[in-house]
Amino acid sequence: MSFQVLVFYVLAAIMIFAAIRVITSRNPVHSVLFLVLAFVSCSGLWLLLEAEFLAIVLVLVYVGAVMVLFLFVVMMLDINLQRLREGLFTYLPLGLTVALLMVLEIGLVLWARSSQLRDMPAPPPLPENYSNTKELGRLLYTEYVYPFEIAAVILLVAIVAAIALTLRRRKNTKYQDPAKQVSVRRADRVRLVSMPSVQREPEIPPEAGSGASTGEQR
């Protein structure tokens, strides 16, 4: 067993362990952290496949941005753990059956494939100055430019839909309208009232005199 194969098995084992822990751990925060571990070991596997760019992007985008955001959401939401676990045993038989079926199907595929693996020649070694990133960019902007554009359109639709579904101007919301604030004139806010000045006797503060004393003065 060469060193490369050893690394592959170690990374794969870590990844499978982490993936299982994602769905079995009781705390959702732990689940997210295990998902991060699964992603990191996956990017290690991609490095073994000489896909450096994708591996780095996986760590940067998924681990760095998406998963951290996810972690925030999980921490912000008040998830009732007790209720999540309630139905486990009622759904267990059905879930196990589905899982078994899927394992069987995957096994069939892998079995059919592995008998074919001998026919697949090993990929030729890549030249010294081969750049994975450059190849990816070349394909993305030439041969696959049409699907690339459509993926962008899908993102645009997602933005439009998200805004259309969440943006709403409530009638009783208090908000500032700078245009109105600027265009206001003095006359709108300040009113000068002319009041005749009346000469008055300096009054005795009310707490000083009782009811009887005020009556006396009058």
Partner: peptide, 30 residues
């Protein structure tokens, strides 16, 4: 896009574009 696709990727992307728009149109009456 779906109608004019001769590539699995395009069939899928067209379908997603259609579905995403439909999901949000259903939810528009919040």
């Amino acid at each position: 896009i779906m109608i004019s696709a001769s590539h699995l990727l395009l069939l899928y992307l067209g379908l997603e574009l259609l579905s995403l728009a439909l999901y949000s149109m259903v939810a528009l009456q919040r």
